[in-house]
């Protein structure tokens, strides 16, 4: 227990931890403030004006289509070549129906808590996961590279206990930042919706869904924190984790994406990690293959689809944690400290 408390102290004493956490929280705050100032509450006057603008655009569309149809027929009668400007059958030139032009297009941006809050949890989790990864990597990586780990092992020779206690302290620290930040995030966007949008139809089901997305976000933060910690411990340097991520993202993901695209592989995104991260947060990501046609009863062509679910993502994240943390523990136990 003394080691755990000491490691918590060490974590909070590190300037890098403080600055990175502060930076992450400032970015989150900037997102909330930005959303606040780019949205506004819609009143009846603004709604009526939007309706008028929609009407006005509808009338313009009608005028333009009638003019185009007339010119089309005129060109057809004169036998002037249209050079592809007009269709063979001029009657297909029609204006859109009124209901296709929506009034909300002419409304300023407004924050609807029910529809939008879930999406905001993705950048929340991503930013804190990035902070967790870097802080986790630095926490153990700097210890290895400066000799602090060796000093500690002279006091506490049980290597696995030392490494796991460090990880426990790190995860506790990240949780201590993430949970209050999540509460503030919920509160912040509730305030944004109250003053700059709408909190209508926020049922218990909506809250439940938001809470579950939030929990998955917290789990993502903890998973990436663990991976950063384990990679840096494996390489005994912070750069191992950061370099590993750059290698995976640039070579493994960007390069792989180009390769799969050139090979015209179906559902190429299914091979890319960000898809699974997104699926973890949104529960499902539906990939589409536009090079196929699934005909409907109405003669419409629908692309072939493939669902990536949060359950599949959970398997991937679990395997990553077990494999990388397992390797770090094995290396800690077996490798000489020199």
């Amino acid at each position: 227990m003394s080691l755990y408390r000491t490691e918590l102290r060490r974590l909070t004493k590190r300037r890098f931890t403080r600055y990175m956490t502060l930076l992450g929280l400032l970015v989150l705050a900037a997102v909330v403030v930005g959303v606040f100032f780019t949205n506004q509450k819609i009143d009846a006057g603004q709604l009526a004006q939007a309706e008028r603008q929609a009407d006005q655009q509808y009338q313009e569309q009608v005028r333009w289509s009638e003019r185009d149809r007339a010119e089309c027929e005129k060109a057809k009668t004169a036998g002037t070549p249209s050079d592809g400007r007009y269709p063979d059958d001029c009657s297909v030139i029609t204006a859109p129906s009124r209901d296709q032009i929506e009034a909300e297009w002419f409304l300023p941006s407004t924050f609807n808590f029910r529809e939008t809050f879930d999406e905001t949890l993705i950048p929340f989790a991503a930013i804190l996961a990035l902070v967790g990864f870097v802080v986790g990597a630095s926490f153990v990586g700097a210890e290895w590279s400066t000799g602090g780990m060796m000093n500690l092992l002279l006091w506490r020779p049980r290597r696995l206990t030392v490494l796991l206690t460090k990880l426990a302290a790190l995860l506790t620290g990240m949780l201590a930042v993430t949970l209050p930040a999540a509460v503030l995030w919920f509160a912040g966007f509730w305030a944004v919706a109250t003053f700059r949008g709408s909190t209508e139809k926020v049922t218990s089901g909506v809250w439940q869904s938001a809470m579950l997305t939030g929990v998955r976000g917290v789990v993502l933060v903890l998973v990436l924190t663990t991976l950063g910690f384990a990679l840096a411990s494996l390489g005994r340097h912070t750069a191992m984790a950061l370099g590993g991520v750059v290698a995976v993202m640039v070579v493994g993901q960007f390069g792989l994406g180009i390769l799969l695209s050139m090979a015209s592989v179906k559902f190429a995104e299914a091979w890319l990690l960000p898809t699974y991260i997104l699926a973890w947060m949104t529960k499902t990501v539906t990939l589409q293959n536009w090079d196929s046609c699934n005909a409907t009863y109405y003669g419409e062509c629908k692309p072939e689809t493939m669902d990536i679910t949060w359950q599949q993502s959970s398997v991937l994240l679990s395997v990553a944690v077990v494999a990388i943390l397992g390797a770090a523990l094995w290396a800690m136990r077996r490798r000489d400290v020199s």
């Binding site: 000491t6 490691e7 700097a142 006091w155």
Partner: peptide, 25 residues
């Protein structure tokens, strides 16, 4: 024990360094 050249986390003070070791031990 001290083994080879002294190695410590450079951004901590001497008191912090020793205090953390004392806590761990």
């Amino acid at each position: 024990a001290i083994v080879e050249s002294p190695q410590f986390f450079p951004h901590f003070t001497a008191r912090d360094t020793l205090s953390l070791l004392a806590g761990a031990g």
